[in-house]
């Protein structure tokens, strides 16, 4: 492969899933996977399979809910939606990410300032 892909950082998958569900509303697993790949511009090497255990964990935490329904092509599929607790979690987690990524980027691009 020509493009260098980056592994999904541990813990960041949850943030991506929650944000996707918040923006798009209820989605099935494949839809979530597609969306994440599109947003990341196919740079992220998401092993699509790892999404399902992650969804299960989010559901156990009470941040997403799941329901069986009918997909756009008329097949039975499991749809996930974000819960109220999930939205709250999404807020705290994105705030934290921004803070951390700000710090990391200062390390990644040294400006000559003494550390």
């Amino acid at each position: 492969m020509a493009k260098e892909k980056t592994d999904v950082l541990h813990g960041s998958l949850a943030l991506m899933v929650l944000r996707t569900l918040e923006t798009l509303g209820p989605q099935h697993g494949w839809g979530i996977a597609r969306r994440i790949e599109q947003i990341s511009g196919d740079v992220l090497a998401l092993n699509q399979g790892t999404l399902y255990p992650a969804l299960l964990r989010l559901e156990q935490m009470g941040w997403v809910a799941s329901k069986w329904g009918e997909s756009e092509n008329g097949r039975r599929a499991k749809f996930y939606s974000i819960t109220r607790a999930g939205r709250k979690q999404l807020e705290t987690e994105s705030a934290q990410w921004e803070r951390i990524s700000g710090i990391i980027s200062r390390f990644a691009k040294p400006t000559g300032e003494p550390l």
């Binding site: 494949w30 996977a33 699509q48 997909s71």
Partner: peptide
């Protein structure tokens, strides 16, 4: 809550649902 759900999970193994979900994903892809 997680622990409770996992304990409940002992009683209702949803293997088949998971397989169906994975099957659906592959078909879509």
């Amino acid at each position: 809550r997680v622990l409770l759900r996992r304990v409940l999970g002992l009683a209702q193994p949803l293997e088949r649902e998971m397989e169906e979900e994975v099957g659906f994903h592959l078909d879509m892809q």
